[in-house]
Design a binder for these strands. Structure first.
Lengths: 129, 129
DNA sequence: ACTGATAATAATAATTATTATCAATTTTAT
DNA sequence: ATAAAATTGATAATAATTATTATTATCAGT
């Protein structure tokens, strides 16, 4: 992977906006700084960054894929009401790959744990109605 | 939900083909038995069955969503080589929602754990080359 | 500084996946 | 049997992603 301004911007936008954005949201975030950037470039770079283990994909939300700049092990909580993605600390479940191997023999390179529910913000606003 | 032949067939195809198929794959599987069924009907019914907790969605594979007839708690292993989806028994990780709550306070309605790696079939065939 | 090889880009077309629309048909409860 | 509600097939519309193509940027080696 060579250096490119576009890739820098995408990575920077991901790091500065820990909102687990989609490719499209990133495109929006970056355009003010580089109006000429192409959506295809965003997609291409995101895929490359994922392939190189620099960022992570989060799927599970309906429709589009979200991205996460944080490589440290952690999980996600998706609010089914506001669709926000929250981080969940690693100690909720540890060494899952190891347990998988000892129980089934399968060797996983990665694991992805995602919870779904209603976040506290949405629970409060619902009560307030 | 009313009864309909189409829904019966979709559910039956899912149960008889534990390959975690996509909507499109199910369409293929069903057409020999009912050539007039519409792809839209397949999508519509899958969504309804998911909403009623009769089947489950599996996302995480690139592209399309896969479906699982089994409602019993279990997880998945996706082979990055052949793209097959294997079932992983529940005892690999138990009571995750409870641990989430006690550690973070978040209340999850569901959790989804997916491993990725290369299955034994693909590992063997690679060695054989 | 210049060059060739390669990688990356913008713009857009193409593809794939899914949902919405709607008139016609089927199912269910009366 | 019949009316209301639900479901269907066909297709259009939308959304998400990937592929294409001509052009431009990067970088190691002159």
């Amino acid at each position: 992977m060579n250096f490119s301004k576009q890739r820098e911007l995408i990575l920077h936008a991901l790091t500065q906006n820990p909102i687990h954005p989609t490719a499209d949201k990133l495109y929006e975030l970056i355009r003010p700084f580089m109006p000429t950037i192409s959506l295809a470039t965003v997609y291409r770079n995101l895929n490359q960054l994922v392939d190189n283990g620099i960022i992570r994909k989060i799927s599970g939300l309906d429709g589009s894929v979200h991205y996460d700049h944080c490589v440290e092990k952690h999980y996600h909580f998706i609010c089914t009401c506001c669709n926000k993605v929250y981080d969940v600390p690693y100690d909720v479940a540890q060494d899952l790959e190891q347990k998988l191997k000892s129980l089934t023999g399968l060797e996983a390179q990665s694991s992805d744990l995602t919870f779904k529910g209603i976040c506290s913000v949405c629970q409060k606003s619902k009560k307030g109605d």
